[in-house]
């Protein structure tokens, strides 16, 4: 009996330690609901949903990459490329603004994969090169004027602005992709091989897993997710500038790491990305509502501090969990 009680206790403790991101998010939400004026309003919640779903989709792709032991710095540039192509194609035939950017994203992801698996360049360097290269391509495609006609008023803009029963389409897309990603990571051979490759690449290779193919798929998924994020952005704004989505890769990486997925690879759960994404989305919202003056400097400072607090709390919660 006594042994049972302690084992239940230790189970509960280890469960709590593995739920650091969720606990942090709940604490943050409780604080926001109690203390932040206007946070609870439906408009605000919808806004947060719209904002986080773009970088959220990127973070899902990034989670696969990081779980496989890699990193993808090119997602911001790929999102910009997709946004540009979506805006350009919005007047063309039906589905063109979806299919063409998606194809571009998958191609860019495949190029990442080829550089990493065939040319054998480390992921950090390869995707850094792609980040620079694709951004250059975006600038060139945008041309001299650097602004491309927008997509407002067409069906395409409904992706960002439309809603069904109060839930924005963008949030539904994010939730849907997250659901698919969870299923893939848990119940498919590919999902398990991502964990195996991230955990120990050599062992995975010796077990007969197709490491190269797995990595190719992972980077193509990341490229596709970046493209979807870019499309959502294109449908949200009225004009696409070539310096759009700069720094999104850092937001995505931060969301993934905050959700408890280790950059070493093979450790973490895709579903937890939701918490990381929401934490990163709620913090600036809280700050914007609390500070009267809209000076971005102070906001950045407070965002940094809050983020630091979140990460510190999590490292405390997870400390014993990791050493086990």
């Amino acid at each position: 009996m006594k042994a049972d009680a302690t084992s239940i206790k230790s189970h509960a403790a280890s469960w709590i330690r593995s739920q650091g991101p969720l606990i942090t998010l709940v604490v943050l939400l409780i604080f926001a609901v109690m203390r932040v004026p206007g946070f609870r309003s439906a408009v605000n919640i919808t806004n947060i949903g719209k904002q986080v779903s773009m970088t959220g989709v990127l973070a899902i792709g990034m989670a696969f990459v990081i779980l496989s032991g890699g990193i993808d710095l090119s997602v911001g540039s790929i999102a910009a490329l997709a946004a540009l192509l979506a805006a350009r194609c919005s007047g063309e035939f039906f589905l063109a603004p979806i299919l063409i950017p998606l194809a571009a994203g998958v191609t860019a992801g495949a190029m990442n994969g080829v550089l990493i698996t065939r040319v054998k360049i480390p992921p950090f360097t390869a995707t850094l090169a792609m980040m620079l290269g694709v951004r250059g391509l975006v600038f060139i495609l945008a041309g001299k004027t650097a602004v491309v006609s927008g997509v407002s008023g067409q069906w395409f803009s409904k992706i960002a602005w439309g809603k069904w029963m109060g839930v924005p389409y963008a949030a539904m897309i994010f939730a849907g992709i997250l659901g698919v990603a969870i299923v893939i990571s848990r119940y498919t051979g590919f999902g398990r091989s991502v964990y195996a490759v991230g955990g120990n690449e050599e062992a995975a290779n010796m077990m007969g897993l197709r490491v190269t193919r797995c990595k190719m798929k992972v980077y193509m998924i990341s490229g596709a997710c970046a493209a979807i994020g870019g499309m959502m952005l294109a449908s949200r704004v009225t004009s696409v500038r070539p310096d759009i989505a700069v720094g999104w890769e850092l937001t995505a990486i931060a969301a993934v790491v905050i959700s408890g997925i280790s950059l070493v690879g093979g450790i973490g759960k895709i579903g937890h990305v939701l918490y990381g994404v929401l934490i990163l989305g709620v913090i600036p919202n809280i700050i914007n509502r609390l500070t009267e003056r809209q000076t971005t400097y102070a906001n950045h400072l407070i965002t940094g501090m809050l983020l630091l607090a979140v990460v510190l709390i999590q490292s405390r919660i997870a400390k014993k969990h990791n050493t086990h």
């Binding site: 090169a129 792609m130 620079l132 290269g133 250059g136 060139i140």
Partner: peptide, 13 residues
């Protein structure tokens, strides 16, 4: 400037 980004990527790789 835009081509310099692509050139940098090529040099890096």
């Amino acid at each position: 400037y835009h081509y310099s980004l692509i050139l940098k990527a090529v040099v890096l790789v």
